[in-house]
């Protein structure tokens, strides 16, 4: 039986203002695929629900997970104060993850926008493909770019133009004249809509990772659904559960 586990914080540091980098000691790491997420539970019991956070990296020995997250409220604020040795309750790994086997030998984009960048790191490590990594940030407070450079060519876009191309990830693609046969992407909805349109135009597959307000994380509550083009085999309506049927979907299958 799967169940909640207690992990230990190995280390935590701030990568950029409000962006935290936390390594967790957990045996669950060996099961993790890029694009999957963990439910993290707060100690503050007035905060009832788990925080679903994507897995950034799996340590080589399969015994530790790197979680890179943004402080958005009280729950992530509590996590940000954890220090080495602190316990944290976790459930997972959850969700389907990126189908990274599909890209062997292909020319691919890995596109991350803001807090959608972290899952691209483990994905980049596992892909056996020609990797063009396109990262979008709000401003010059960049993070994870150096880690990603080890695995492919990195292109940067910033909304305020303080680094790389001024604009979003699609602007960076255009400015650098990049092409790909397959796309993996995670980021805010407007970015994913642009990725979906680009992929449809080129007739190439795009695997996009979605997020939505969740409660259970295991497919029971039906809180986190996305509209689907076709009737979904599990729900029997035009809805899929982001937590269990996703969070990664082929862009053409979902209405975003």
């Amino acid at each position: 039986m799967k169940q909640k586990q207690t992990a230990r914080v190995i280390s935590q540091r701030e990568l950029a203002p409000g962006i935290l980098d936390m390594w967790l000691d957990t045996e669950l790491a060996v099961q993790a695929r890029p694009g999957q997420f963990l439910n993290l539970y707060t100690k503050d019991k007035s905060l009832l629900l788990p925080r679903p956070i994507s897995i950034c990296e799996v340590r080589e020995d399969g015994r530790a997970l790197r979680m890179v997250y943004r402080i958005v409220g009280k729950g992530t604020g509590e996590f940000s104060r954890y220090r080495e040795g602190d316990p944290i309750e976790i459930l997972g790994p959850l969700g389907n993850g990126f189908p990274y086997e599909k890209s062997v030998g292909k020319k691919v984009f890995l596109m991350g926008g803001g807090i959608g960048i972290p899952p691209m790191l483990e994905l980049a490590k596992r892909l056996k493909a020609e990797k063009q990594i396109v990262l979008g940030y709000r401003n010059g407070d960049l993070f994870l770019g150096e880690d990603l450079e080890k695995y492919g060519r990195v292109f940067v876009a910033t909304e305020d133009g303080s680094a790389g191309t001024k604009g979003n990830v699609m602007d960076a693609v255009r400015e650098n004249g990049l092409e790909a046969e397959l796309i993996y992407a995670c980021g805010p909805l407007p970015m994913l809509r642009a990725v979906k349109a680009f992929a449809a135009e080129r007739g190439i597959p795009a695997y996009i990772s979605l997020e939505e307000r969740m409660a259970c994380g295991v497919g029971a509550c039906l809180g986190c659904v996305v509209k689907t083009r076709a009737v979904h085999p599990h729900t029997n309506v035009n809805n899929a559960r982001i937590c269990t049927d996703g969070p990664v979907f082929e862009a053409g299958e979902v209405e975003i």
Binding site: K45, S46, L47, L48, L49, E212, R213, M214, A215, C221, L222, G223, C224, V225, V226, H234, T235, N236, V237, N238, N239
Partner: peptide, 27 residues
């Protein structure tokens, strides 16, 4: 089958949660 409500369908509040799933079910 019922498709349920648009998202967001859940929100956290102090010591509890709000939901408006809208009875999505496969029939």
């Amino acid at each position: 089958p019922w498709p349920g409500n648009p998202t967001p369908r859940v929100a956290e509040v102090y010591g509890g949660m709000l939901n408006a799933i809208g009875l999505q079910n496969p029939g």
